[in-house]
């Protein structure tokens, strides 16, 4: 599914990365815990999170995650957005809560990120 379709499904506001909306996403990882994201997420994964600070962007950068949706209407500050732009990420903000956002994407056939083999 493309990021553009995801944006429509979640009725999300694009905060940066308009030029990358045709990128395809294969799976989603939803978490507020960056420790877990670092342990379990892989690239081509969309990160769904309520944690809106620079560590979220840094974590995504390390994992080559190129798209983040902030839930519950949360938006990062300018500095954090700058960091996302530098890393060519798509950042969106949806009004939906985490549970609803996850449900919408799941029922539209986006699978959860697969856990790495030990």
């Amino acid at each position: 599914m493309t990021l553009r379709e995801i944006q429509e499904l979640l009725d999300a506001e694009i905060l940066c990365g308009w030029e990358f909306l045709d990128k395809k996403i294969e799976s989603v990882f939803a978490s507020d815990l960056m420790s877990d994201v670092l342990a379990f997420a892989n690239e081509k994964t969309l990160l769904l999170t309520g944690l809106v600070n620079a560590h979220t962007i840094r974590t995504a950068e390390m994992l080559d995650i190129s798209a983040i949706v902030f839930v519950r209407g949360k938006k990062p500050d300018e500095e954090t957005l700058e960091l996302a732009k530098e890393n060519k990420m798509v950042i969106m903000s949806t009004k939906h809560i985490m549970y609803v956002s996850s449900g919408i994407l799941y029922t539209n056939n986006l699978k959860g990120a697969s856990l790495p083999k030990k």
Binding site: L38, A39, H55, T56
Partner: peptide, 14 residues
Amino acid sequence: LGFGAGMGLPNIKR
């Protein structure tokens, strides 16, 4: 801040 799950060291090892 999103850290402190006790996953870091095992993740580094992995």
